[in-house]
Design a protein around this nucleic acid. Structure first.
Lengths: 316, 316
DNA sequence: CGGCCGTTTGAGCCACATCAACCGGGGTGG
DNA sequence: CCACCCCGGTTGATGTGGCTCAAACGGCCG
């Protein structure tokens, strides 16, 4: 595989050169070959940008970190989260990203981690959305997490030799593997990073608790509404969805797996929400028509989602 | 309050002396006064033992740590977990425990943390069992966690100014508060502790995922059976329940809140399990009559519970 | 054009909720 | 000491939310 063999030890300049060659080749081809070449080109360019950025001297000493404009587009959300929500200094951020392996580009529907597979890296999602799914013996599925840009996909990965859930891309996605050996090294060198990873794990656990509560105790309508509220809020925190309308790549079947309902019932419940003028949802786009009303029926209290910021204030 | 005012800055010897005085006083009294005095005495003795132990030079240099016999009874489970499951060296363990505030003793049913309350410490459970409960607006409750000796009760506490759930003692319990300021200090001084806390959080998140799966996708019988399996396994890991029979302090109503069922239905489901010869449960004692069979109907795979050990092996 | 996937709609059924009554034991107050 | 009550467990009757099975519809892609 290209990405395993030739990317290491190349300068950003070389990488960009390679990417150009791919693009030229791609121009001559068609169909899936062309797609593949373009994907490789994107990968190379991303890697080049990442290295350039991670290698640049930190501005921290000057007081303000104004890296904003120089951050490559694909990791903007990630970097924003690292700095503002997890309170990492620029030097720590760069150390973290420099420790990463070459990124993986996956298409919608592709599998990032397969249940039972050996995993040797923490996966950080730079871009896109993923779902974490457990498949049961009888073929039923339960989605246990949906991640957005900036989230760590397998926080618990350190604990287990084998992945306990599969992770699928819900949109085209980029993710950055951080090998466990690198985690080990970088967390001892930078205690702030260890702390940040801990907080990230705790934040995800808080979200899971909220899910447990509606799974256990709430009616279908409330569950669905609450999930929509949560995703909206998280997408906006991650800097993606601006406004009240955005891409929402889950099918009704997947919503069912998420909410512990059948897809049929999800459908009917959606129609109720629609008929109440709260939302519109079709063709993978979600539109909130009445946000306050939706929060109401969802009994949604977003405080559990912006906990991170609070902690940083409280602790320092 | 006695425990706030006079415990600090006393030597273990003084503390033991104070405890003796309480016991003498208690002998003259009756009823709740007597109980209170005895509780205070226990507290003082516990604190004395803890200080003695935490202050003793670490045996690490000599290779083996044979502290086992000198560890006070009340924190045996905790220390066992810290050393064997979280891989902390003796010096780290002592640093962690030395940073703790005076312990809290609570009785069955008492509240350790109240929903909405400001919390300024991580709570480590030394002894007993607790449940973590969320109460909804309409009065319904959902239990989101049950903790056993050695667990951290509010892993996510660092994130939030106010507790999101209440925590109640299911048995008489001892817990050791670790003020956030102390956490801050001790984790930067001992990176291994930061790592251990992270792993603990991740382990609890793994348990939560499993709960989400049965809450979402499994029938009442399987849910109940799975929960019983999990608790049995965890109690035994914590070194409490030996054998196939032990104390199980949850009422059927609480089981309902836990499993997202009504107490009536819990009752009927329990009877089915009983009639199948799998378990016996009455008067707060649980007896497993057919462990393999129970695992079967529960679709229980304990690997998610001993993840910690694996990680330590894998990482070092 | 046909096949596939996601959505929609209908009909029937079952698991579980809710309400209500009763039982038994342990603690409390007279 | 007894009478009482309260709480947890047990049992029955009845209602319903959500599941399952089945069929039709529409858009997208090869």
């Amino acid at each position: 595989m290209l990405r395993q063999l030739s990317i290491h030890n190349r300068s950003p300049h070389d990488l960009r050169q390679l990417a150009r060659e791919r693009r030229e080749l791609a121009a001559e081809k068609t169909g899936s070959i062309r797609a593949l070449l373009l994907k490789e080109a994107k990968l190379l360019e991303f890697q080049a940008e990442l290295r350039t950025w991670a290698g640049r001297p930190s501005f921290e000493a000057g007081g303000r970190r104004d890296l904003g404009s120089t951050v490559p587009y694909e990791i903007k959300s990630l970097v924003a989260k690292l700095s503002s929500r997890m309170g990492l200094a620029a030097a720590d951020q760069q150390a973290l990203l420099a420790a990463a392996s070459p990124p993986r580009f996956v298409q919608k529907g592709e599998c990032l981690i397969e249940q039972g597979e050996d995993v040797a890296a923490l996966m950080i999602l730079c871009n896109g959305m993923t779902q974490t799914v457990r498949t049961l013996l009888d073929g039923k599925q339960q989605i246990v997490a949906v991640s957005v840009a900036g989230d760590v996909l397998n926080c618990g990965g350190l604990l287990f030799c084998q992945a306990r859930n599969s992770i699928f891309a819900l949109t085209p996605a980029i993710c950055l593997p951080l090998p466990f050996s690198a985690v080990e090294a970088v967390t001892t060198a930078h205690p702030a990073i260890a702390r940040a990873l801990w907080l990230e794990t705790a934040a995800q656990a808080a979200i899971q608790q909220e899910w447990m509560i509606w799974l256990g105790r709430r009616a279908a309508q409330t569950r669905l509404a609450h999930f929509l509220c949560e995703m909206t809020y998280r997408l906006q925190l991650s800097g993606n969805g601006v406004g009240d309308e955005f891409e929402f790549p889950l099918t009704q079947r997947e919503l069912g797996d998420l909410l512990g309902l059948s897809s049929v019932h999800v459908n009917r419940t959606l129609q109720i929400l629609r008929s109440q003028g709260l939302i519109e949802l079709n063709h993978q786009r979600l539109k909130l028509r009445n946000r306050a009303g939706l929060y109401e029926v969802a009994e949604f209290d977003p405080r559990y989602l912006d906990g991170l910021r609070l902690s940083v204030c409280g602790a320092t």
